[in-house]
């Protein structure tokens, strides 16, 4: 399968001496939904900056769909769209003009540009705002406008730098649906985010970057399998008898109240075995959820081990 992105030994040292990237290597398959995670200042935005040519690299190479971004400047730029972290459109222009202008930069004929503009503004719920100045939009709308703008030339690769930062939960969920739809239609997506739940929900592969180095690069499934233990919160319809215990080596429990219990499962123990013991004790389970975000636990442990 073709690689959407291939980064080899990429290093970036800023003029003030700050070493943002220390020779990272990274590959993203075509069609992937890829998460690039890391704490603030880890090098995520610098990596995106180098790919999108806004940051001059110190050394290393970047290829987009097999073409080097230094030697095939214009071809590679046609293949990707970027949604930056900060708002970067003119606040004095109308919503429609911003998207149309971007279409013009990519050489789209006016009629096609108008069709695409309408298509993406409608998809992102901005069509009604098309004649308003962009400064009047809410924070969430501004982010959606940047996504519409990045998609107007229908790139094969979409790079999103914290697209849902500061966006309310409802809107975030609708953006997830939209991004999943885009990915399902064949667009490769690279996402940086601070919301680990977001990465877990959306992405198939993941890289964790910390202090300019890649500390983990694997599939989401493999990464989550690394977890030693998981804590579940079970809500029950029937009352939990006092003194109830699972009597399993790899599971412990804590009764929160009469209808709520916290179960810690480790060592590869199946949750079905836990359910079987509840059933045996005639306790009916109403609902179950993870106490903490699983990826969050792993993320923190990876960063700690890199210290």
């Amino acid at each position: 399968m073709t690689l959407a992105i291939s980064i080899q030994n990429l290093a970036k040292t800023y003029a003030n001496g700050f070493e943002a990237l220390k020779g990272i290597s990274l590959e993203v398959q075509e069609g992937d939904f890829f998460a690039l995670l890391g704490p603030n200042g880890a090098g995520k935005s610098t990596t995106i900056g180098v790919i999108s040519t806004l940051v001059n690299k110190t050394s290393g190479s970047v290829e987009v769909f097999g073409k080097n971004v230094d030697t095939h400047v214009y071809e590679t730029k046609l293949d990707f769209g970027v949604v930056p972290q900060e708002v970067n459109f003119s606040l004095f222009e109308k919503v429609r003009d911003i998207v149309m202008t971007q279409a013009g930069y990519y050489g789209l004929p006016r009629k096609l540009a108008e069709q695409r503009c309408e298509k993406y503004l409608r998809k992102l719920g901005l069509w009604e705002k098309r004649d308003e100045r962009s400064r009047t939009l809410s924070g969430g709308m501004k982010r959606r406008l940047m996504i519409a703008r990045a998609l107007v030339h229908e790139p094969k690769l979409l790079i999103l730098d914290e697209p849902t930062a500061g966006v309310d939960i409802e809107l975030r969920r609708s953006m997830w649906e939209f991004l999943t739809e885009i990915n399902n239609s064949g667009t490769t997506i690279i996402l940086t985010t601070h919301y680990l739940e977001e990465a877990e929900q959306l992405c198939r592969n993941i890289a964790i970057i910390d202090a300019g180095k890649i500390v983990e690069n694997t599939s989401m499934r493999k990464l989550l399998n690394e977890l030693d233990s998981q804590v579940y919160i079970l809500e029950t319809t029937s009352r939990i008898p006092s003194g109830f215990d699972l009597e399993l080596d790899n599971a412990s429990l804590e009764i929160v109240d009469e209808h709520c219990i916290e179960v810690t499962v480790s060592g590869g123990l199946s949750i079905n075995e836990v359910f079987a013991l509840f059933s045996k004790a005639d306790i009916k389970i109403d609902s179950m959820r993870n106490k903490t975000n699983r990826l969050e636990q792993l993320f923190l442990s990876k960063l700690e081990s890199n210290d």
């Binding site: 040519t53 071809e75 046609l78 459109f89 202008t101 990519y106 050489g107 703008r149």
Partner: peptide, 18 residues
């Protein structure tokens, strides 16, 4: 300069315009 100031110049720099 106002494109630089508002970062909207990035729209141009990221695009394939020579």
């Amino acid at each position: 300069f106002s494109h630089k100031f508002q970062h909207s110049v990035e729209e141009l720099l990221v695009s394939p315009v020579p």
